[in-house]
């Protein structure tokens, strides 16, 4: 069953407690610059920093591995694609079998890309693993000046997610009861999937309409400025987190520029 990420025993971890907007901004400020280069050194430094800071977010290494393992599939994909399509084929030729030509340059490039995928993804995984959706919406409204009706409306829709997951299971069983199954035929499987998805969408839109009416009945569209029952405060420590993320990211990039390994994605 799908459930929003829970925030369990992390309330006390020093960085997990930071303002959700600060955490999200820090994750993006740290991760996005890492996208700008293809060398292996920058993401390796980035990963080292991320893993070193992990305990401060109260996330265990095992849990991070559990959340991040699908990236291994992507890593495999990168390796295959690099072998077939790498732009840079310099270095010593290791394997040469017709279309497949593996050089040290190709392997070094693949290593850089794989490290980069992990280094770019982990900050977001860490932040979202330690952030409650309600707190995020509150902070987006109160600290990032996001329009409150949009943030709260999205949050209300998000609450229906587990319910829609249960609906999907019921719809699947109901299709078997109607005498429909696809067996091993992939086309039939696809059609059945599309029919189930359509039924889910109809039910979800109907629920959404009712939810919107119920929200209006409680004054959601009243036009009076909303007040906040829950306070999210952006403290100096939150600024420090954001600034720290920018500094560390810049440091990793600077190291790669100074050592001459920097390879920009553009140009």
């Amino acid at each position: 069953m799908i459930t929003p990420l829970a925030s369990d025993a992390r309330a006390t971890a020093p960085l997990a407690r930071r303002n959700p907007v600060a955490k999200l901004a820090a994750a993006l400020i740290f991760a996005l610059p890492l996208v700008s280069t293809l060398d292996p050194l920058t993401p390796a430094l980035g990963l080292a920093i991320e893993l070193a800071l992990l305990p401060l977010f109260g996330v265990r290494y095992g849990e991070l591995a559990r959340r991040a393992w699908p990236l291994l599939l992507a890593a495999g994909g990168i390796l295959v694609t690099m072998v077939l399509f790498a732009a840079d084929r310099t270095g010593t030729v290791l394997v040469d079998a017709g279309p497949i030509e593996i050089t040290t340059g190709v392997l070094l490039g693949a290593l850089g890309l794989v490290l980069r995928v992990f280094a770019v993804a982990l900050p977001g995984i860490i932040v979202f693993a330690t952030t409650d959706p309600t707190d995020l919406a509150d902070a987006l409204v109160q600290n990032a000046k996001a329009p409150p009706r949009f943030a709260i409306g999205a949050l209300a829709a998000f609450r229906l997610l587990p319910l829609l997951g249960l609906q999907w299971q019921a719809l699947t069983l109901a299709r078997r009861a109607r005498g429909l199954d696809a067996g091993r035929n992939p086309v039939a499987k696809l059609r059945l999937f599309a029919s189930t998805a359509f039924a889910l969408l109809v039910g979800a839109l109907r629920r959404g309409g009712r939810l919107a009416t119920a929200m209006d009945a409680r004054g959601f569209d009243a036009g009076t400025p909303r007040t906040y029952a829950r306070r999210q405060i952006f403290r100096p420590a939150d600024w420090t987190l954001v600034a720290g993320a920018a500094l560390l990211s810049a440091a990793a990039l600077a190291a790669s520029v100074v050592t001459g390994m920097f390879r920009p994605v553009i140009g």
Binding site: P4, T134, I152, R159, R210, L211, R218, R226, A229
Partner: peptide, 19 residues
């Protein structure tokens, strides 16, 4: 199910007064 807006019970009751 289509009237509750928030994830925590108290927050949901607070939703109307906030509005």
């Amino acid at each position: 199910q289509t009237q509750l807006v928030m994830a925590r019970s108290g927050d949901d009751v607070a939703f109307g007064p906030e509005n």
